[in-house]
Amino acid sequence: METGWSSEDPVRDLTRALTGTMRKTAARLVHEWLLAVRGEVDVPDIAPALSLADIYECHACVEHIGQVYVKGIMEARGGRFGVREVIDVHEAAAIAARAADPAKRLFVPGMAQAPGK
């Protein structure tokens, strides 16, 4: 588990941590990064995420996936989060950028506005 995010370049740290991981693990890392680095509060209602077909495949991941999904940081594909898909460096960089900058986050159906803004 990543617990020491670099104070010099936490976005770089996050990108490196995400590269090569499964999306379910990435969701946890991003969620923890948001809490530790940005101090970003959780969204209380993650209902739009609960309809993702594979969200319950990971007992320990639902809250992490819910938060990063409703905040528009990690998207769904075809109604699935893709818990076991592996992230490459390009996707890792894009996710880290959205995590760091709410202005870059994606619109999520069912959310009134992109949280974090």
């Binding site: 959780d42 993650i46 969200i55 319950y56 639902v62 809250e63």
Partner: peptide, 25 residues
């Protein structure tokens, strides 16, 4: 059944429980 909640807590946050759900939580 599968878990009663998937939104477990952490130090400083109590997590979420629901009265009803279409699935198990």
């Amino acid at each position: 059944l599968n878990d009663i909640t998937f939104r477990v807590g952490r130090d400083g946050a109590p997590g979420y429980g629901a009265w009803k759900d279409d699935y198990t939580p």
